[in-house]
Design a protein around this nucleic acid. Structure first.
Lengths: 364, 364
DNA sequence: AGACATTAAGCAAACGATTGCGATGAACAC
DNA sequence: GTGTTCATCGCAATCGTTTGCTTAATGTCT
């Protein structure tokens, strides 16, 4: 079944960069399969695609010939005829962000299982770049689009997408009136609040993320709501927007720690931001977990392994990708689908309190 | 000049958003452009592609009509005709690894500038998965492939790739006899050794990475060579292979710190591994930078922002991607190209010594 | 003024698959 | 033995571009 007539792996790469290339490695076409199998090309097509109306032995013979020849349909030809590309476009703020990269893994895995392939592009959260990248995806005639960089309100890119018929779904961030798969960020924020309340923190600050992303906004809102319910509303000056990277957390935390009376706990809506917060706390000569509790969000793999393990909210990122892709494909198939909010879980670790054992406290 | 008897763009989209889906958003074809411009489709094609032999005013008219109509060539049709997909496949161990994600950003940016689009897939460093993913890329008729997960020796996937004519290039990791763009890992290892020697460390250990990846192997080799030259060969028991993640570093460092006499410095061939090492050092009750110096490799953004900033080797990851893509496209165009090794730079920070100011010590 | 370049644009055949429809033959009922 | 019904499979059009070859029109040279 394996062919090794040619060069063979023993050809020891001596002439590394001498001759450019040569053997153009032709792919067999459906016509060749038809000829060898002694049937018409249309029959090969139907047999391979498992349509009814073809004799069982014919199907068998065609299939055998096809993979003896190593036949693989040319996606360009298929796409031209069927008007379907088998491609799903994915737009993310940045793939170097582990959270998005993980979601993308889930998206891609689910797409692959359904016979689709994905196409990522970074947008850097920049409107103009988004527009250009989306145009590129359209040019490629993608069958659907996944957006990981939706804006909470007034996202006209989404409006445009909804206007023409390209199926799409949002992941990670929500936006009013659009199909999305996210974690329940409101609930996640509340979980953090309850955790800190239980530990007795009465004066707390929030490194709140970007004002245009639902993740930051809703995590912050859930958190503040819960504190307000406990009769300890979080004052405005202790809630500051931030970037989603380490240095963003560092800068904002420096500011929050300068407020008097100083907060005894800081909630950062993103783990990397939280790492920046930890840096700020240490630089201020304070002890993480003792003097100032720090809580993050997402439970990236790094969080549990830090010198001082980070208390954070586990959000099922890979699953979010898988579910998001499933929803998109459902929608593209014309089925009616609804937005999903996945359940977040608290991972209590040392950064929020004295010597608690690593791992989740239980719950579901 | 142009006749516009038909529908015309002025038909004012009144019934815009009444029905949710429906409007399948037809793309105009080259034939429609031709009709509106009053020329033949072949003329449109030539005009748009800037071929010679078309009158300047015709070119102008066609161009104008084309973008009034929003014409974009159908990639499936183009691909079918030209046998070129405009797609470059990229295989990486894992996209959630910031190093690879950053290299990918460079690859993608350079590809986009050259009019190509990229296609990533994770292989998890698993031979069978690699083979399957590569087959998928072949099925898509990619014009070239970038491999980020090459094995140092006996990589039969590469042998097969070389045998048939698909252009390819390796990034990040090298493999004998294949075109690659990497950093000079031998030199990087030496830089670390020189740094630690200058600080007076005589007994050092190495968290060496995977034995099948050139990165780990060569960084380790360069390091050991330099120490051997200084008359202080690193003993075998202080050099252990590892995974490239945080917990891998943690486990191996636990073992190294148990060796007696205990090493005073540990070199991890990857920043995340180094973070795991830092965790192990702290857990052993030792002070990072004072009792045990820790050095990583890659200078990921996180490194400089850690509570104790990490001394590491800056490897130009984005540039590696850009250069890699450029080399691949050169090769695909039939030009002869040679492998490249980019220059690494030491970033001395606090993790390797007492209170040194953050940033590079200078050099080029 | 006629032969001949030269330039500009059209014609039509690919590329490789899918698919509506028609043709063929066998099985079957009467 | 004729007519009808299935089950199989072939025919040919089609998707939207690109490109070798022709044709038509214009200019140039002797």
């Amino acid at each position: 079944m394996t062919w090794r007539d040619d060069a063979g792996p023993a050809a020891s790469g001596r002439t590394e960069s001498v001759v450019p290339r040569s053997v153009p490695r032709r792919h067999p076409t459906i016509a060749e399969v038809a000829r060898v199998a002694g049937v018409h090309a249309s029959t090969v097509s139907r047999a391979l695609r498992g349509e009814s109306g073809i004799a069982a032995d014919t199907v068998g013979r065609v299939r055998r010939v096809a993979d003896e020849l190593g036949y693989r349909p040319d996606p360009a030809a298929v796409g031209l005829r069927t008007r379907r590309s088998g491609l799903i476009g994915v737009l993310v703020p940045r793939l170097t962000d582990v959270v998005l990269a993980t979601i993308y893994e889930g998206l891609d895995a689910a797409a692959a299982e359904a016979g689709f392939q994905t196409f990522v592009a970074n947008t850097g959260d920049d409107p103009e770049t988004r527009r250009r990248r989306l145009a590129t995806l359209r040019d490629r005639r993608v069958d659907g689009v996944v957006l990981g960089d939706a804006r909470l309100t007034d996202d006209d890119l989404l409006a445009g997408l909804a206007a023409d018929g390209l199926p799409y779904v949002l992941v990670s961030r929500r936006s009013r009136g659009h199909l999305s798969v996210t974690t329940d960020d409101l609930r996640g924020g509340r979980l953090v609040a309850e955790h800190l309340l239980a530990l007795g923190h009465e004066r707390v600050g929030v490194v709140a993320g970007r004002t245009y992303s639902s993740t930051g906004v809703e995590r912050t809102r859930g958190f503040r709501e819960r504190y307000a319910e406990a009769g300890l509303p979080v004052p405005e000056e202790l809630v500051l927007p931030s970037r989603y990277d380490v240095s963003g957390g560092r800068e904002v935390a420096d500011a929050l720690l300068a407020v008097r009376p100083r907060p005894t706990a800081l909630f950062a809506v993103n783990d990397f931001t939280a790492i920046g917060v930890m840096g700020a706390v240490r630089s201020a000569g304070l002890r993480i977990g003792d003097d100032v509790a720090v809580v993050g969000y997402n439970d990236v793999p790094l969080a549990a392994e830090l010198p001082i393990p980070l208390t954070t909210i586990a959000s099922p990122m890979t699953e979010m990708g898988r579910v998001g892709m499933a929803r998109l494909l459902d929608r593209a198939a014309g089925r009616t689908v609804r937005s999903v909010r996945l359940r977040p879980r608290l991972m209590a670790r040392e950064s929020s309190g004295p010597g608690r054992p690593a791992g989740s406290p239980g719950a579901d």
